[in-house]
């Protein structure tokens, strides 16, 4: 039996050529209709192909087939430091284009776990550590797309790593503010055990609020001013609104009344530093009277009254959730 490919005369009964291995007699049932591309895949493939053509990467380029869209001096630098990192801003995306995502899959998974863990524990020390680790892993993924293939020198690799670490850290900061643009975290300066808000708890608030429509008992984010430092910008904290614009506040013997009505001390506990003071004040129309645990020492009554009043336009957000500690996590009842 003669082979059609190499014309070697084989022994009868053989199914494959002894010399070249070609099939001598085709199997009775063989699929002769090729697989076809689904129509929806066409644009996707076109995009991926264009990316492979225009985005140089060490994985598929070599000396003979350099891309000519950049001058020679820029080619390597751009390939290494720009495209790989930019594409890897979505972790693993550069690898997907290079069709070697498999090599990085566990790192992407680790990044995802660290990121979600960091977000879940955001505001705590462990949360910060996890988020930092997520950034570190992300940078490693970005470098793995190109830099680590290009450079063997430890010094260069470490240099690139540090440089990208700074860039990615800044990017994470910016991105966090962009994604959560209407949310502001902050620590509580009020201590109200009745609603499970303690001093130092991390609260989450929304910035899209109407500063004129705040209710008594709301927690608002505002920079606290101290006597003599009204113009200095301090870190904003969440404080409790005690009295609304136009109301009359009396502080006397460790309790306070608003418009002559005693406030429930469980809901509106008077801060320690105010218990020794005694004063009466009217809240201006553009301000709120707030309850903050620590405002400084040595105030007389008049000064204390003035620092407890916050102007409306200095209110940045209204808290809706207790975030940290975990055991008290939950929404704040209105």
């Amino acid at each position: 039996m003669r082979c059609l490919q190499c014309e070697f005369e084989n022994m009868p009964g053989l199914t494959k050529c002894m010399r070249c291995g070609s099939v001598l007699q085709a199997p009775a049932a063989v699929e002769v209709h090729p697989p076809r591309m689904s129509r929806w895949k066409k644009p996707v493939r076109h995009i991926m192909r264009s990316l492979r053509q225009t985005v140089p990467a060490a994985a598929w380029s070599d000396e003979e087939h350099r891309f000519h869209i950049f001058p020679e001096w820029l080619r390597k630098a751009s390939r290494v430091s720009f495209f790989g990192a930019v594409l890897s801003f979505i972790p693993g995306f550069a690898h997907i284009i290079q069709r070697r995502f498999f090599s990085i899959r566990w790192w992407v998974l680790a990044w995802l776990v660290l990121l979600l863990g960091g977000l879940f524990l955001f505001g705590s020390t462990l949360g910060q550590i996890l988020l930092g680790a997520a950034v570190g892993v992300h940078v490693w993924i970005a470098l793995h797309s190109a830099v680590l293939k290009e450079y063997d020198s430890l010094r260069v690799r470490v240099g690139y790593y540090l440089a990208f670490l700074v860039i990615f850290y800044i990017s994470y900061q910016v991105l966090g503010r962009v994604i959560f643009f209407n949310m502001r975290p902050g620590f509580s300066a009020s201590h109200v055990p009745a609603v499970q808000v303690h001093r130092g708890d991390l609260l989450l608030g929304r910035t899209d609020i109407d500063p004129n429509g705040l209710a008594r008992g709301s927690y608002v984010l505002t920079p606290l001013s101290t006597l003599g430092g009204h113009n200095r910008r301090s870190t904003p904290v969440y404080v409790q609104v005690v009295a609304l614009p136009g109301e009359v506040v009396d502080v006397n013997d460790g309790s306070w009344t608003v418009n002559g009505n005693f406030l429930d001390t469980e809901q509106y506990p008077i801060p320690v530093w105010l218990t020794k003071l005694k004063f009466r004040t009217v809240v201006p129309e553009d301000s709120y009277f707030i309850n903050a645990e620590f405002r400084g020492t040595g105030y007389n009554s008049q000064q204390a009254a003035s620092v407890c009043i916050v102007v409306r336009n200095r209110i940045e957000a209204k808290a809706f959730m207790r975030w940290i500690p975990l055991r008290r996590r939950g929404f704040i009842a209105e």
């Binding site: 070609s22 099939v23 699929e31 090729p34 697989p35 591309m37």
Partner: peptide, 19 residues
């Protein structure tokens, strides 16, 4: 323009006509 399919089909053809 169906390149992955062409590769698959070339592989299948090479089962009958190796190399």
């Amino acid at each position: 323009g169906e390149y992955p399919e062409a590769l698959t089909w070339a592989d299948k053809a090479m089962e009958m006509f190796p190399e």
